[in-house]
């Protein structure tokens, strides 16, 4: 049997909001250590890696490893049915054909169950090695969201240029050009507002706005986002999910023709 309960269904709602624009379906790998998802978008340009640790759940039981193919749009519709304060429980039996979502109101006077059919999926799993990156930048997620939105008006892609002083985002197109420079914050008193640059080598990379604007949908999960970059390798854009895990987006860079 598989059963995972979260007191705050809002966390799962936010996770779904953070992936539904990129993925139509995904395999949820459930084991004793937690729930993991790795899935590429249809164009193989970006990849979502979601990790929810079993110890972050209020209750977690997984008697045997399960791979459950789920429709993200259907799951998202079901989670929209949960009240903001509801507890959510995911439940499936061994060799399941469906998964049940159970929403319970805080005073336990309302119990709603939604059963979703699982889907058979061919899965392509990429091996992503642990890498040390030339630049790792931590910045407020709301600022990153705003920069991606603002610069998307000027072009289809945004160039990230990182030095030890800070990070510069720039875009150009038919209307003109724009660039935004963020300096590393001198004092780290306010962790949520801090901009921290960890640089080994300066980096300059160009990424598609369309995908960046999907990644920033994870902003409500965490006040800070971490961008890991090395020249000519995919960007890693990471948001922590409270004490329970993280969501990482990988995005292949654009290169000059």
């Amino acid at each position: 049997m598989f059963e995972a309960r979260l007191t705050q269904s809002a966390i799962l709602k936010k996770v779904l909001d953070a992936v539904k624009d990129l993925l139509s379906e995904a395999t949820f790998e459930c084991s004793d250590s937690g729930i993991q998802v790795q899935a590429m978008d249809n164009a193989h340009v970006s990849l979502v890696s979601l990790n929810l640790r079993s110890d972050g759940f209020d209750k977690y039981r997984c008697d045997r490893n399960l791979s459950m193919g789920m429709s993200i749009s259907c799951m998202s519709k079901i989670l929209r049915c949960a009240g903001a304060e509801d507890t959510v429980t995911l439940r499936a039996w061994d060799s399941p054909e469906s998964i049940v979502f159970i929403f319970e109101s805080p005073n336990k006077d309302k119990l709603a169950e939604y059963e979703m059919k699982l889907i058979n999926m061919d899965q392509e799993h990429l091996g992503i090695p642990e890498t040390s990156y030339s630049c790792v930048v931590k910045m407020p997620s709301a600022e990153f969201t705003r920069i991606c939105r603002d610069l998307s008006q000027f072009g289809e892609s945004i160039t990230f240029a990182c030095t030890k002083e800070g990070i510069k985002f720039s875009a150009s197109g038919d209307y003109g050009s724009a660039n935004i420079k963020l300096a590393q914050t001198a004092d780290a008193d306010n962790e949520e507002e801090a901009i921290i640059v960890n640089m080994q080598e300066p980096v300059k990379l160009t990424f598609s706005c369309r995908y960046l604007n999907c990644f920033v949908k994870a902003g409500p999960l965490c006040n800070q986002v971490q961008l890991s970059m090395s020249d000519d390798v995919p960007l890693v854009c990471e948001y922590k999910i409270g004490d329970i895990g993280h969501i990482r987006y990988y995005l292949a860079p654009k290169i000059d023709d």
Binding site: H44, V45, S46, E124, H125, L126, V233, A252, K254
Partner: peptide, 14 residues
């Protein structure tokens, strides 16, 4: 115009 790379250019299927 820069061209978009494929993620499979960077990571192997396992």
């Amino acid at each position: 115009t820069p061209i978009q790379n494929d993620l499979k250019e960077f990571y192997a299927l396992v």
